[in-house]
Design a protein around this nucleic acid. Structure first.
Lengths: 100, 100
DNA sequence: GAGATGTGCAACTGATTGGTTGCAGATAAC
DNA sequence: GTTATCTGCAACCAATCAGTTGCACATCTC
């Protein structure tokens, strides 16, 4: 779960695609590939990674498929990160009081 | 930057190592490899990924090297995620007001 | 100094990834 | 009904990655 989410976000191309989906609304793979050095197929693969991570959802409309951003999953990632930071802070505090 | 951070966090083994560093304090690679199915070398490679992401720092002490968690970088990841979520929320709100 | 312990480096293997090309099937436009 | 457009699938390639093994070097202990 976190694996695929962080994995999907670790690629700048995928982050950029996600940002475009968030900013410009649902887009088609060929459209996204239009102003991009990538092939449509490459874009499709990246989109599939986003879909697998739950960060986007495809929706068929006639002969074309629009991908929509579904960033609820970002909350999961945020939770993990925030919790980790909090643990770190707690440890620091514990050291400050307990130790020297 | 985000690439390496998210990339480092996308591996469950690395997240686990980071958690151990955060929870138990600075550790040595061989120590971490002790209760783990991995080789020391494998652990070292994972730790190097964390170091490259700025999530941990090695420190030489005599003949051994302790790795310490330095989770300030988590804040960078959190910022990006929160900002992305915010953009999404803004877009939703814009649609609600502007459109139907 | 000799032996034990911890680290670093290099080479190698198998699996995964990012990307391409080619082609076939479905749907729209004329 | 043709033709153009969009998608899906499969094969393929180069590069990267996770993990291993083997060995050399440094450092602590006795």
């Amino acid at each position: 779960m976190l694996d695929v989410v962080f994995g999907a976000l670790s690629d700048p191309t995928r982050r950029r695609l996600l940002e475009r989906l968030v900013h410009d609304g649902p887009q088609t793979a060929t459209c996204l590939a239009g102003d991009s050095p990538l092939t449509r197929q490459a874009v499709v693969k990246h989109l599939q990674a986003l879909v697998e991570a739950g960060l986007a959802t495809p929706r068929r409309e006639g002969r074309e498929v629009r991908y929509m951003a579904t960033p609820e999953r970002l909350a999961v990632a945020i939770s993990w990160l925030v919790e980790s930071s909090a643990q770190w802070d707690r440890r620091i505090e514990r050291l400050r009081q307990h130790g020297r």
